[in-house]
Design a protein around this nucleic acid. Structure first.
Lengths: 99, 99
DNA sequence: TCGATATTTCGACAACTATCGAATTGATGA
DNA sequence: TCATCAATTCGATAGTTGTCGAAATATCGA
C-alpha cells in the first residue's frame, strides 16, 4: 500500500500533544529538534534556552509523555530524538476532526 | 493561481492557537463547528456541552482571539463560524517548523 | 418604554503548571 | 571505591486558567 500506516492516537494522547505544543518553551525545543536529523543532546538544548536544568527536565518529560520525543542515553549524556510520525499522526487527526 | 494564499500567522497567533486547541472543551467545540458547513448557534453548543453560559463565553472568546472562529450576530442570537483557513495555516506552519 | 431572553463581563476561587534551588540518582574515570 | 559531572526528582512558590454565580449589557417584541 502506498499510504503510510500510522498507529492512531488515543484521545488522551491527542490532549497530551496539544498541551505539549501549547508551551512556548516546548515548542522552541521541538523546533530545534526538528532542525536536526540526528538526536540533540540535552546540554545543547540547555545552552540555547535560558532555563535551569530542572525546568528543561520537566519539559522533556512532558514531551516524552506526549510521545513527541524519544530519549537516548549515551553514558552520562542524554539526547532526544523527535518522533515525526507522531506529529504527522497528530496533524492528520486534527485535519480529520476540525476541517 | 491554484494554490490558496493564506496570510502567515504571527508568532503570537501560533501560540494563541496552540493554547486554544489544548483545552478539551474548546477542542470539542471546534470539532462540532467543523461538522457544520454553516455557522453554529451559541445555544446549540450550550446544549451539547455541560457548561455554564459564562464558561462557554469564555472559551469562545479564546477561540475568537486565536482567530479560529468568527462571530456572527443575528438579533438576540450569536453564532460561530469556523475559520478553516486559519487552521490550515497553522498546520502548515507546524509542519514547516517541526517536521 | 418595558419586560423577557441571550450573551458577556466581573469577581472569586480551585486546580494546574512553569519555574527554580536543593537534594538525589546515574554513570564515568581515576 | 570515590570524586565528578549530567540529569532527574522533590518541595515550594508565583502565575495562569477553567469554572461558576451574579450583575451587566444587548436585542427584540409588545
Amino acid at each position: 500500500m502506498a499510504i503510510s500506516k500510522r498507529k492512531a492516537l488515543s484521545e488522551n494522547q491527542i490532549q497530551l500533544i496539544a498541551k505539549a505544543l501549547a508551551d512556548p518553551r516546548r515548542y522552541e525545543i521541538l523546533r530545534r529538534l526538528g532542525d536536526h536529523e540526528n538526536a540533540l543532546a540535552c546540554g545543547t538544548v540547555l545552552e540555547c534556552l535560558e532555563i535551569s536544568p530542572a525546568t528543561l527536565s520537566h519539559h522533556m518529560k512532558e514531551l516524552k509523555t506526549a510521545g513527541l520525543v524519544q530519549q537516548v542515553r549515551k553514558g552520562k549524556f542524554v539526547s532526544y530524538l523527535p518522533q515525526r510520525d507522531v506529529l504527522e499522526a497528530y496533524f492528520e487527526r486534527l485535519r480529520k476532526d476540525l476541517i
